[in-house]
């Protein structure tokens, strides 16, 4: 799906936990996430900390969308 959205001309960032699969399917901007059943959260944290974590990840995704890339790029910390 990521690839087709990119092909249509929209910049897209893939937020996912299994980065090797994202690389295989051909995503260009990739932000690694927390875990498969809760990519953008962590139920072990307090609600405030969990939201702060989610906000950091989404900020990273927005940063990825604002960054020119030359081929597949994984945005680590």
């Amino acid at each position: 799906m990521v690839k087709e959205i990119e092909r249509a001309g929209l910049p897209v960032v893939h937020m996912c936990t299994i980065v090797p699969i994202s690389l295989t399917v051909g995503a260009n901007r990739i932000v690694p996430t927390v875990a498969i059943p809760h990519p953008l959260g962590n139920p072990e944290l307090s609600p405030e900390d969990e939201k702060a974590l989610r906000r950091r990840l989404v900020s990273k995704a927005l940063h990825a969308l604002s960054t020119e890339v030359d081929g597949q790029t994984v945005f680590e910390d």
Partner: peptide
């Protein structure tokens, strides 16, 4: 199927003036 869904979705998003997409996967 995934390819077709995304083609349709992307066409609508472009028509609606969307600039960028965040796609999340589990």
């Amino acid at each position: 199927s995934a390819k077709r869904y995304a083609e349709e979705i992307a066409a609508e998003l472009k028509q609606d003036g969307v600039d960028a997409v965040i796609l999340t996967s589990t």
